[in-house]
Every structure is written in structure tokens, then in C-alpha cells.
């Protein structure tokens, strides 16, 4: 499956949730589907989107938080799975797009291409609900179940190593940060 198709399939379900994405293709593709003030694109600090999502989920228990992660980012902060599993906020859904590649920097292969199984790592860390999916249909189904499930979930989606033609987003980093914080203040 293509990540852009997968994102399009779940966009209506997550558009009102607090969403934190990693940098690069994921951010650009979500942005192109339609930016929302409740979306935050972490344009650096690779690996920390899930830690930010955990911090938000613990502070905003009445809101649903969705983290859009990637294999390269998650491999830089594997300990995050053990920390998320330890506190297992019921309002956090962790989606990992695994293209087995550091696409944004030229497509160098990551360790998921040579056997590292991130869903197995998440299970081994104690994440209560884990699924691995390979089609848009199963991805949409699993994400829908996770969003309704009220327990910490990690969904690992195998996607093709292709990205958008342009990563340009007409949104300044600080503009995004201030808008996102205001959106969280104004939500419950």
C-alpha cells in the first residue's frame, strides 16, 4: 500500500483528534490532505513524536491522541515503546508507517528491511494492542478498531517507499506550534 492512500483512508476518522506526526513524507502527505489546528508536525527531533504523544495523552485524558510514526524514527527511540507500554494511556493510538527506508534522506534501508519486526518489538514491550497490516483495507479496519478500543495500540503498516513530489508545507514551525497549543487549550 502507499502511505498517502492509507492516510487518506483514515483522515476522516482522525481529523478531530490530536495528531502528532514525524517529519518528512508523513507530515507533507497529512498536510496535503488538509491541515487542521489540532495537527502538529515534528519537523526534527527524530524519534520523539511518540514521546510527545505520550506526554499529551497523559495530560489530556479526555482527548484522543494519534501519533503518526515511521520505522526510521521509531528505531531511533525504541525505548519509547517500553515507556508507552508502562503507562499505556487508553487515549493513545500509535501508527507506524514502515517503508523499510529512510526515504526523506535518499532511501537508505533501515533494519526493518533486514528482519526487525516493529510489531513484535511493540508486543514484547507490553503494548496491549498491536497489529501489523499490509493493505489499505486492513489498515483502515485496524485503525478504526484501535480508535474505538480505548486501550493503547500500536499499528504497524507496511508501506511502499514512495513519497510526495514536494515536502513543502506553507506553515511555519512556530506558527504550527502556537496554533496547536491554542487548539489544545481550547479543547477539553
Amino acid at each position: 500500500m502507499k502511505r498517502a492512500e492509507a492516510l487518506a483512508a483514515i483522515y476522516p476518522a482522525i481529523r478531530d483528534d490530536i495528531v502528532v506526526t514525524i517529519m518528512g513524507a508523513v507530515a507533507a502527505e497529512l498536510y496535503q490532505l488538509g491541515h487542521r489546528p489540532n495537527f502538529f508536525y515534528l519537523e526534527h527531533a527524530m524519534g520523539l513524536a511518540s514521546s510527545m504523544g505520550l506526554g499529551i495523552a497523559l495530560c489530556k485524558p479526555a482527548r484522543r491522541v494519534v501519533v503518526l510514526d515511521g520505522d526510521g524514527s521509531l528505531l531511533m527511540n525504541l525505548g519509547t515503546l517500553s515507556t508507552m507500554a508502562r503507562y499505556r494511556p487508553r487515549n493513545l493510538v500509535h501508527i507506524v508507517f514502515d517503508n523499510e527506508s529512510l526515504l526523506s534522506v535518499g532511501g537508505f534501508p533501515t533494519a526493518t528491511g533486514t528482519g526487525t519486526d516493529l510489531a513484535a518489538v511493540a508486543r514484547g514491550c507490553g503494548v496491549p494492542h498491536v497489529a501489523g497490516v499490509e493493505t489499505v483495507e486492513s489498515f483502515a479496519r485496524e485503525v478504526e478498531a484501535a480508535l474505538a478500543g480505548r486501550e493503547l495500540a500500536t499499528i504497524v503498516a507496511k508501506v511502499e517507499a514512495v513519497g510526495p513530489a514536494s515536502f513543502h508545507m506553507d506553515l511555519g514551525l512556530i506558527e504550527n506550534r502556537l496554533q496547536f497549543a491554542r487548539s489544545l487549550r481550547e479543547g477539553s
Binding site: V20, F40, A45, G47, L48, A49, S50, S51, M52, G53, L54, G55, I56, A57, L58, C59, K60, N77, G79, T80, S82, T83, R86, Y87, R177, F180, A181, L184
Partner: peptide, 19 residues
Amino acid sequence: VRLAKEEEGVGISAGAHLA
């Protein structure tokens, strides 16, 4: 929040601040 590594703490604090 007991961390596996300190860099996670920056993410936790950033999330908390924005919330």
C-alpha cells in the same frame, strides 16, 4: 513518567507544555 532514556523526557515535557 519513568523513562528508558532522558531524551524521551524532552518529548514528554514538550507534550505537557503544549497541553
